[in-house]
Amino acid sequence: MKFTQYHFSLGLVAGALFFTACGKSDESATADSGAAEASAELVIPDAPDEAMQLIFSELAKGNGGIVWQAMPASYQSDVNTIVQLAGTKIDAEMYDTTIALLGRIGQVADKQQAFIVNSQFTKSSPEQKAKLEQALPSMLQLFEVVTTSDLATSAGLQSFDGQKFFDTTVSDLAKLSIELSKLEDSEQLTLEDLGQAEFSTVELSDLAATLKVAAGGQEQTEMLTKVEDRWVPADLAADWSTNMAQGIAQLEAISPEQMTASKPQMMTVIAMLDGVLTQIESAKTQEAFDESLQGAMMPLMGMMMMGQGMGGAAPAMPAPAMPTAP
C-alpha cells in the first residue's frame, strides 16, 4: 500500500495545467470559504505519524486544503510558479476554447446518460451496465468539478493560488472519490479507509522516518523525508526537484512560433468537435447517438495529434472510448 490518495492530491496540481474551466457560483464560493477557514485553523503536527494521521483524516472529511497546508513552503512556491508559467506560455484563445469544449462534453454526457450506458461502444454485460448507470452521475460530477475549477482561462492560470485550488477543487474531488468508492467492489483501500488508518513510528531521525500504516486490515511500512518543516513521502521528495525542473524547462521551451503554427489546425479541429457534439446532444435514438459518437473519433484523434505537435502544451482530450462500469 502506498500513500496513493496523498500522491493523487499533489498530482492534481499538474492536472490543473490541462483540465480547467469556468468559475464557481456564489453558493459554492461560500462553501469553499468555510473549507478554507477550517483548514487554516489546523496545525500540522511535528511528529510524522501524527502529521499523516491528520492529513488523511481531514482528506476523508473532504478537506483538500490540508494537503496544501502539509506541503513544504518551497513545494508550494514551485507549484504556484509552474502553473503561473504555463499561463504565460499557452495561446489564450486556443486554451480557453478547448476548456470550454471540455466543459460542454461533460454537459452533453450528462444529458445523454441513458444512451451512454447502452452504447455499443461500452460492450458491457447487463450487470456492468447497471453499475455504470449507478456510477455515471458521480463520474460526471467529478468531471464537472475539474472543468469548473478556478482556473478557467489563461489569465486564471497566471493568477493561480494553490491554497485556494486545494481548498476548493481538491476538496470537491476528495468528496466525490469517497462517493465513487462506495459503488466499487474493489478490495483496494479507499480514502475512507485511509482516514481511519492507524499510523505509528517505527524509526525516526532528524530527516527521515519509517511509519507502520494499518488500514482496511492491511499493514505496510512507509518511508518519509523531512523537507523544511514538513514530512513528505520519501519517493516524492527524491523526485520533486527533478520533476519541477523538467516541467519548467518544457514550458520554457514552448515558443510563440510553435503555438501560432499549430493554432489554425487546432481551432479547426475544435470547431469540428463542436459540431459533432451538437449532433450527439440532439440524438433522439440509440442508433443516432452511436453514429454521432463514431463521428467524434476522427477530430478527437486530430486534436491529440495537434497537442503532441505542440510538445503537450494543449489540453489533453479524453479518449474516444466511452466510460466503462467500475
Score class of each variant (00 low, 15 high):
240 W>R: 05
42 L>E: 15
150 D>L: 02
32 D>S: 07
317 M>H: 02
209 A>E: 00
311 G>V: 03
143 F>S: 12
296 A>M: 00
178 I>S: 04
85 L>P: 14
113 Q>D: 02
57 S>D: 11
196 Q>E: 04
221 T>I: 10
92 A>N: 11
139 M>K: 10
313 A>I: 05
23 G>R: 13
297 M>R: 08
278 T>C: 09
191 L>Y: 06
28 S>L: 14
206 D>E: 11
146 V>R: 09
189 L>A: 09
138 S>L: 11
204 L>D: 07
109 A>P: 13
91 D>N: 13
20 T>W: 03
277 L>S: 14
286 Q>I: 00
74 S>K: 01
32 D>E: 08
238 A>D: 13
301 M>S: 11
229 D>G: 06
92 A>S: 12
256 P>M: 02
57 S>A: 13
31 A>C: 02
17 L>M: 10
25 S>H: 00
220 Q>K: 13
25 S>I: 09
51 A>N: 08
255 S>M: 15
305 M>W: 00
147 T>K: 03
88 T>L: 01
161 D>N: 12
186 S>L: 03
292 S>M: 09
265 Q>I: 03
278 T>N: 08
272 M>D: 14
166 F>H: 01
81 T>G: 15
256 P>R: 02
169 T>W: 11
249 A>E: 06
74 S>W: 00
8 F>P: 01
235 D>P: 05
34 G>R: 03
189 L>N: 04
249 A>S: 03
125 S>G: 14
209 A>T: 00
188 Q>P: 04
135 A>H: 03
298 M>K: 10
323 P>N: 09
6 Y>F: 03
260 T>V: 08
23 G>M: 10
118 N>E: 11
132 L>D: 11
140 L>T: 08
157 L>H: 09
2 K>R: 05
149 S>T: 12
293 L>F: 15
166 F>E: 01
44 I>F: 08
247 G>Q: 02
101 L>D: 14
46 D>P: 11
227 V>H: 08
267 M>V: 07
278 T>H: 09
107 Q>W: 04
238 A>E: 12
183 L>G: 01
91 D>Y: 09
291 E>T: 14
173 L>Q: 05
196 Q>D: 12
46 D>V: 15
47 A>V: 04
86 A>G: 11
306 M>V: 06
6 Y>E: 08
155 A>H: 07
259 M>F: 15
310 M>K: 07
166 F>Q: 00
120 Q>E: 10
264 P>G: 05
32 D>R: 10
305 M>N: 02
62 G>Y: 12
28 S>I: 05
232 V>A: 08
38 A>Q: 14
109 A>S: 15
106 G>Y: 12
112 Q>K: 15
154 S>C: 05
78 D>K: 04
179 E>P: 10
301 M>H: 10
146 V>N: 02
267 M>R: 09
124 S>T: 02
22 C>G: 13
90 I>A: 02
47 A>G: 07
119 S>C: 10
10 L>C: 11
102 L>C: 06
26 D>H: 04
138 S>K: 10
39 S>D: 06
111 K>V: 01
3 F>S: 08
278 T>R: 05
273 L>H: 04
288 A>G: 12
267 M>L: 07
281 E>R: 13
